[in-house]
Amino acid sequence: MSIQHFRVALIPFFAAFCLPVFAHPETLVKVKDAEDQLGARVGYIELDLNSGKILESFRPEERFPMMSTFKVLLCGAVLSRVDAGQEQLGRRIHYSQNDLVEYSPVTEKHLTDGMTVRELCSAAITMSDNTAANLLLTTIGGPKELTAFLHNMGDHVTRLDRWEPELNEAIPNDERDTTMPAAMATTLRKLLTGELLTLASRQQLIDWMEADKVAGPLLRSALPAGWFIADKSGAGERGSRGIIAALGPDGKPSRIVVIYTTGSQATMDERNRQIAEIGASLIKHW
Rank of each mutant, 00 (worst) to 15 (best):
residue 3 I to M: 08
residue 3 I to Q: 13
residue 5 H to R: 08
residue 12 P to K: 08
residue 13 F to R: 02
residue 16 A to S: 15
residue 17 F to V: 15
residue 17 F to S: 08
residue 18 C to P: 05
residue 20 P to M: 04
residue 20 P to R: 13
residue 21 V to T: 10
residue 21 V to M: 05
residue 21 V to E: 05
residue 24 H to R: 13
residue 25 P to F: 08
residue 27 T to Y: 02
residue 29 V to Q: 14
residue 34 A to C: 10
residue 36 D to P: 05
residue 39 G to K: 15
residue 40 A to L: 05
residue 41 R to S: 09
residue 48 D to E: 12
residue 50 N to H: 12
residue 51 S to D: 15
residue 52 G to I: 03
residue 54 I to Y: 09
residue 55 L to A: 06
residue 56 E to D: 12
residue 57 S to K: 12
residue 59 R to Q: 06
residue 64 F to Y: 06
residue 65 P to E: 02
residue 65 P to I: 03
residue 68 S to H: 00
residue 69 T to V: 03
residue 72 V to R: 00
residue 72 V to N: 01
residue 75 C to P: 01
residue 77 A to V: 11
residue 85 G to V: 06
residue 91 R to D: 06
residue 91 R to L: 05
residue 92 R to I: 14
residue 94 H to Y: 15
residue 94 H to N: 13
residue 96 S to I: 10
residue 96 S to P: 07
residue 99 D to T: 09
residue 103 Y to N: 06
residue 105 P to I: 07
residue 113 D to Y: 12
residue 113 D to E: 14
residue 117 V to T: 07
residue 117 V to K: 01
residue 119 E to Y: 03
residue 124 A to P: 00
residue 134 N to H: 04
residue 138 T to A: 15
residue 138 T to V: 15
residue 140 I to R: 02
residue 145 E to C: 13
residue 146 L to D: 00
residue 148 A to E: 15
residue 150 L to H: 04
residue 151 H to E: 12
residue 152 N to A: 13
residue 154 G to I: 02
residue 154 G to R: 07
residue 154 G to Q: 09
residue 156 H to Y: 15
residue 156 H to L: 12
residue 159 R to T: 10
residue 159 R to Q: 09
residue 163 W to V: 13
residue 165 P to W: 05
residue 173 N to C: 13
residue 174 D to C: 06
residue 176 R to M: 10
residue 176 R to K: 15
residue 178 T to Y: 02
residue 180 M to F: 11
residue 184 M to L: 07
residue 188 L to K: 00
residue 188 L to I: 13
residue 194 G to D: 13
residue 194 G to Q: 10
residue 196 L to V: 14
residue 199 L to K: 11
residue 200 A to S: 14
residue 202 R to L: 05
residue 203 Q to G: 12
residue 208 W to H: 03
residue 208 W to E: 03
residue 212 D to F: 02
residue 213 K to E: 10
residue 215 A to H: 04
residue 216 G to L: 08
residue 218 L to A: 04
residue 219 L to G: 03
residue 229 I to Q: 02
residue 231 D to V: 04
residue 233 S to V: 02
residue 234 G to K: 00
residue 237 E to Y: 12
residue 238 R to P: 09
residue 238 R to S: 11
residue 240 S to C: 08
residue 242 G to D: 00
residue 246 A to Y: 11
residue 247 L to V: 11
residue 247 L to P: 00
residue 251 G to P: 08
residue 252 K to N: 12
residue 254 S to C: 14
residue 254 S to G: 12
residue 254 S to H: 14
residue 255 R to E: 03
residue 255 R to H: 05
residue 257 V to T: 06
residue 257 V to M: 05
residue 264 S to I: 04
residue 268 M to C: 05
residue 270 E to T: 14
residue 275 I to D: 00
residue 276 A to I: 07
residue 277 E to A: 11
residue 278 I to Y: 01
residue 280 A to P: 01
residue 282 L to I: 13
residue 286 W to Y: 07
